[in-house]
Amino acid sequence: MMNKGGGSGGGSGPTAAAAAAALQKQKALLQRVDTDITSVVDNFNQIVNVARVSDPPMKNSQEAYMMEMRASRLVQAADSLLKLVSELKQTAIFSGFASLNDHVEQRIAEFDQEAEKTNRLLARIADDASASLKELESHYYSSAQRSTLD
């Protein structure tokens, strides 16, 4: 889930601190997951429990309010879980340095290749142009056209 690697190296300060921070964060995230899931389960249980129609009608209306409250809490917990997922996504996007670097390397290689290809193409065009120019010039100057032109 998180980048824990590098903490085992241990010797250097910042790495260790980062690893500790990562561990802390992981713990916090897990705790949040636990809390949210417990909340979901509890609230659901409660909702199911109040399903029984109780005798005094007053209690029933109380239970209706409770049901609504539980439901909103349940949704809230689910939302919080989703938020957590999106946070994880962000972390995955921004902390996946290995893949990011790979991408950068790949792009660099691609662009280098592209540049090389372009250079080759330009060189070829230049060669072609100079060859054509030479040919055209020799044709022009050895043709009868030039004398009639002037």
């Binding site: 399903a51 129609v53 009608p57 029933n60 239970e63 209706a64 439901a71 949704v75 689910a78 989703l82």
Partner: peptide, 30 residues
Amino acid sequence: DLAVSTATKLQGYRNLGNYFKQSAKALEQK
């Protein structure tokens, strides 16, 4: 009396179901 309170409760659960559906849709959209 029992029938009335059962119906009320059922209505409550129906509302709950709608609420859940709505929020599920909202979350899905999100």
